[in-house]
Simulated assay, not measured.
Amino acid sequence: MPYTIETIAAPSTLGLSSNGVEKLAEVLLSCGLQQKIHSNHPVIYIPAHYYQRSTIRDSETNCLNTSAIIHFSKVLHKAVTTVIQRKHFCFVLGGDCSILLGITAALKTKGVYGLVFIDAHADFYSPEKSTTGEVADMDLAIVTGRGPELLTNIDGLKPYILDENVIHIAQRDEEQTEEYDSPDIRATDIACFSLKQIRAEGLGVIMEKVLRHINTLDIDGFWIHFDTDVLADEINPAVDYRLPGGLQFNEATMLLSNLLATGKAAGISVTIYNSDLDANAYIARQITDCLGNAF
């Protein structure tokens, strides 16, 4: 299905304690992403406010960069709202996964939306269980209403997304979440299709289940979140937290293209590609091709 696409560059690394992912938009755009997704609109740039970054946890939330993330989320919220009001497809280039707070808050003001969360990690830590305080390892928990009120209830919109309207695809950090006693995403109403399940049943079968599940949801549309660490470690080591296994590029393209073909996608966010770990942008070009082929 053809989409009229507007791209937003949201180069925030406020949800991490490290740098590198803030160059994601710059590098993918330099690889010709706009042309590959057939977007003729100028890119909208969100300032990232790196001067506000801190390595010290906020005393009220036990998270890093709480105030800066709230400010960034509100600015991104306005940009996403503007694109959706124009009935255009919103393509947001991160940054880290904390950009989801502003995106999903914007969706909440426009209706009831679902979230297809494609990520190697559950991103379901609570601040007290997180060893880092990074909002990027608890973003899915936060957007579904779990965690500090300052982050879960921006502009009184808690929860931004309901559990029953979330689908998580390709998690492979189950052992880590158990080791660090993270809340279990599988104990919620979130529909989960792990990488282990994909390998056992086949991606085609899982894709059919995902599409059937989407059709049961009473929603106005859904958002796609694509964290590049969902890709196999051997083809994409340019991420901050590496895990063995993962999806191949053709599998990611197939997954995204089927979701886009529903005509119900309001937008997509792409996060956690770290250009500092990708000499000569070799991986970036392949990610760009993957995204372009999906459209």
Results as ranks from 00 to 15, higher is better:
residue 257 S to W: 09
residue 281 A to I: 04
residue 266 A to M: 10
residue 291 L to T: 08
residue 283 I to Q: 00
residue 266 A to W: 02
residue 281 A to D: 15
residue 270 V to K: 01
residue 253 T to Y: 09
residue 265 A to K: 01
residue 256 L to K: 04
residue 265 A to E: 05
residue 257 S to V: 11
residue 263 G to H: 01
residue 254 M to K: 12
residue 261 A to L: 12
residue 253 T to D: 10
residue 260 L to T: 04
residue 263 G to Y: 04
residue 270 V to E: 00
residue 287 I to H: 06
residue 273 Y to I: 06
residue 270 V to A: 05
residue 279 A to D: 15
residue 276 D to R: 14
residue 252 A to Q: 07
residue 252 A to L: 11
residue 280 N to G: 03
residue 279 A to S: 12
residue 280 N to R: 11
residue 268 I to A: 02
residue 283 I to E: 02
residue 266 A to D: 02
residue 286 Q to A: 09
residue 264 K to H: 05
residue 254 M to Y: 15
residue 254 M to E: 14
residue 275 S to D: 13
residue 280 N to A: 11
residue 274 N to L: 01
residue 275 S to N: 12
residue 258 N to H: 15
residue 260 L to N: 06
residue 264 K to R: 13
residue 272 I to F: 12
residue 286 Q to K: 15
residue 256 L to G: 02
residue 271 T to Q: 01
residue 271 T to I: 03
residue 251 E to A: 11
residue 277 L to Q: 14
residue 295 F to H: 07
residue 272 I to S: 15
residue 284 A to G: 04
residue 276 D to G: 11
residue 287 I to F: 07
residue 290 C to G: 03
residue 281 A to F: 15
residue 295 F to C: 10
residue 279 A to N: 12
residue 286 Q to T: 08
residue 250 N to P: 05
residue 289 D to R: 05
residue 250 N to K: 14
residue 279 A to G: 13
residue 267 G to K: 01
residue 291 L to F: 04
residue 252 A to M: 10
residue 258 N to A: 12
residue 267 G to V: 06
residue 261 A to E: 12
residue 287 I to K: 03
residue 254 M to W: 09
residue 295 F to T: 07
residue 273 Y to Q: 08
residue 274 N to P: 02
residue 258 N to F: 09
residue 262 T to W: 02
residue 266 A to E: 06
residue 265 A to W: 03
residue 284 A to H: 09
residue 280 N to V: 05
residue 271 T to A: 07
residue 292 G to Q: 04
residue 255 L to K: 13
residue 286 Q to L: 10
residue 264 K to I: 01
residue 256 L to D: 00
residue 252 A to T: 05
residue 253 T to S: 14
residue 275 S to V: 08
residue 278 D to G: 05
residue 282 Y to H: 11
residue 278 D to M: 03
residue 291 L to A: 08
residue 280 N to T: 05
residue 278 D to N: 05
residue 282 Y to L: 13
residue 270 V to D: 02
residue 278 D to H: 03
residue 257 S to H: 14
residue 295 F to V: 11
residue 272 I to H: 15
residue 270 V to I: 12
residue 266 A to L: 08
residue 290 C to I: 04
residue 253 T to K: 11
residue 258 N to Q: 14
residue 292 G to W: 04
residue 276 D to W: 13
residue 282 Y to C: 09
residue 280 N to D: 14
residue 290 C to A: 10
residue 281 A to H: 15
residue 263 G to N: 00
residue 283 I to S: 02
residue 267 G to P: 04
residue 286 Q to I: 06
residue 258 N to V: 06
residue 294 A to K: 05
residue 257 S to Y: 10
residue 288 T to D: 05
residue 281 A to G: 08
residue 282 Y to T: 14
residue 280 N to P: 02
residue 259 L to H: 09
residue 275 S to A: 15
residue 273 Y to E: 10
residue 250 N to G: 05
residue 262 T to S: 09
residue 258 N to I: 04
residue 277 L to M: 13
residue 269 S to R: 03
residue 270 V to W: 00
residue 262 T to K: 09
residue 266 A to T: 06
